[in-house]
Simulated assay, not measured.
Amino acid sequence: MTTYIPHITLPNSVFENPAASILLPIALGTAVGFSTRPSDTQATYLALRQPPLRPPPWVFGPVWTALYGLMGYASHRAVSAGLSPMASPATVATTKHGATLYTLQLGLNLAWMPLFFGIRRPIEATIDIIALIGVNGYLTYVWSGVDEVSAWCFAPYLAWLGFATYLSAGVGYLNNWTMKGGDAKKTE
C-alpha cells in the first residue's frame, strides 16, 4: 500500500472546499485540453484510423468536464468524511492515503492528452491510461472504506477510462503505434 506523501498530495484546503475540489480538476483538464490546441487535436483525431464505436470529437469535452467535476466532488466527500474530528486514526490514515492516490491519478489523467496528441506517443499514452485505471480502481477501493458515495462517484469515471483505453489502444494498433506528423489515413 502506498502511503500519504504530503509533498505530492494536493493540500487539504483544496479537498475541504467543495468548489475548489470540483473546479480544480475541471480547470486543469480544460487547460491541458487547450494547451494541445483543440483544432489540431480534432484534425489529428479525425485523420487517424479509429476502432469501431468511436464517438465524434465533440463528445469528449462534455464527458470529461462531467467526470472531472464528479471526481472532484468525490474527493471532497471522502476527505471531509475521513478527516472529520469523529474519524478514527485508521480512517484518517486511509483518507490521507486516498488523497495521495487521488493526486497521482489526476497527474496521470492530465498527462494522457499531451502524450497522445502533443508528442504523439500512443504507446506511452496507452501505458499511462492503463496505469490510470489501476490507480483509480485502487483509489475507489480505498475510499469505499471512508465514504461509499465517493467510491460510487468513481464508477462512471472507471467505465469511461475502460472505453478510453480501448480507443487509445485501438488507435495505436490501427495506426501501427505511430502518429508521425498526423498523416495517418482516415478510415473509410
Rank of each mutant, 00 (worst) to 15 (best):
D40C: 01
F34E: 13
L24Y: 02
M113E: 04
E124N: 05
M113R: 07
N136D: 12
T44M: 13
G61D: 07
T3R: 14
K180A: 14
I22G: 10
D128Q: 07
P6L: 05
P25A: 08
T94V: 03
K186Q: 14
I26E: 03
G134V: 05
T94C: 01
L48I: 09
G172H: 00
P55Y: 10
S150T: 15
R77C: 13
V63S: 13
T140F: 00
T65P: 10
G172Y: 05
P18H: 11
A164Y: 14
A27N: 03
P114Q: 02
V92K: 15
P25D: 00
Y102T: 09
K186C: 02
S35D: 03
K185T: 15
A20R: 08
K186R: 14
P6Y: 05
L67P: 13
K185F: 09
T36A: 10
A125V: 05
Y138F: 04
G137M: 05
R120E: 05
P18Y: 12
K185D: 12
N109Y: 02
L104D: 02
K185A: 07
Y173D: 07
Y166T: 06
S144I: 00
P89G: 09
D147M: 01
V171G: 09
T95G: 15
P52I: 05
F15V: 02
L101T: 09
S21D: 11
L28E: 02
T126M: 04
G82W: 07
